[in-house]
Amino acid sequence: MDKLTKEQRRKNMQANKATSTKPEILLAKALFARGHRYRKNNKTIFGKPDLSFKKIKLVIFVDGEFWHRKDWHIRKNDHKTNQEFWIKKIERNIERDKEVNAELSKQKWSILRFWAKDIEKNLLTCILK
């Protein structure tokens, strides 16, 4: 049973953003301040990475812990409602991430993936990578 009403749940889910999340903006601003120039969500690159550096063929993805399965083997059964839907959805996200990594590697791109919480907690470590 969901703790929120249908309207509350709808508003909650609408608040989830696909681009320009706080961790993504934090990383982008820090890189820009260090003189690195990038493109955000470049549609010409497979997988539409959060940040891309075409000259050096580097892409950066900022993955949210919920949507991209951090500790998935432990948290798989955390969903209390509509479990079948959420497991299927998140496992498809996992597969998509693997497909994107494989295709970009085939195209000789360097790939960095950061968890959103890692950026918030250890921004300098992420920038140095």
Score class of each variant (00 low, 15 high):
V100W: 03
I94S: 15
L104S: 03
L27G: 00
T5K: 12
L58T: 05
I127P: 03
D118W: 06
K11L: 10
N12F: 12
F66M: 05
L4S: 13
Q107H: 06
I56L: 09
D2C: 13
K89V: 02
E84C: 03
L51M: 12
R10H: 13
F32V: 01
I90M: 05
K117S: 10
R96K: 14
L27W: 11
I127Y: 02
G64P: 01
H36P: 07
K121Y: 09
I74N: 14
K129M: 15
K55M: 11
K3S: 02
W115L: 11
A102F: 15
K40A: 03
I87R: 13
E103Q: 12
E103N: 05
R75Q: 08
K98T: 15
F46D: 04
E95H: 08
W86Y: 08
F32L: 02
A18H: 08
A102L: 15
L51K: 07
D78R: 11
K89H: 04
I60L: 07
D50S: 06
A116Y: 00
F61G: 00
H36Q: 14
T81V: 08
E65C: 09
E84T: 13
R10C: 11
W86M: 05
Q14R: 13
K121D: 13
K117Q: 09
W86V: 03
R113H: 07
I45A: 05
R9P: 09
I119Y: 07
E91P: 03
Q8E: 10
Q107L: 14
L58V: 03
T125S: 03
K43R: 14
K89S: 02
N41Y: 13
W72C: 02
W115M: 09
K6S: 10
T21L: 05
V100R: 04
R96F: 13
Y38V: 01
A116H: 01
I56T: 12
K22W: 02
I119R: 03
D63W: 05
K76Q: 09
L31H: 07
V62G: 01
P49V: 03
I127C: 07
A28S: 08
